[in-house]
């Protein structure tokens, strides 16, 4: 599983997150508004997943190892408390 509910309620993105993960992520965020998303173990994000993050704007924890995401997308997303992964 690349999207799952982790300990303490955070939503964890792990490995390469494909297009289908957008729906799973969205339903988790709807079920629990304000939940933190942790992407520190995510190696690749499909555009659809990025779109959910942009639309819902949950607080995000950690640093995404994908350099494109880290350099260009992370600054445009709300960060919870970066680097505290």
């Amino acid at each position: 599983m690349t999207v799952r509910r982790g300990e303490h309620g955070a939503i964890l993105l792990e490995g390469p997150c494909p297009v289908e993960d957008a729906e799973t992520l969205l339903s988790l965020l709807i079920a629990e508004p304000g939940a933190i998303v942790d992407w520190s173990a995510c190696t690749r994000l499909h555009t659809s997943v990025v779109q959910v993050l942009l639309a819902v704007r949950p607080p995000i924890r950690g640093t995404c190892p994908d350099p494109f995401v880290g350099q260009w997308l992370a600054p445009q997303l709300p960060s919870g408390n970066p680097r505290s992964a």
């Binding site: 969205l26 659809s48 990025v50 779109q51 639309a55």
Partner: peptide, 8 residues
């Protein structure tokens, strides 16, 4: 939100 429709 439709997660499978691109709005970007």
């Amino acid at each position: 939100l439709d997660p499978f429709s691109c709005n970007l």
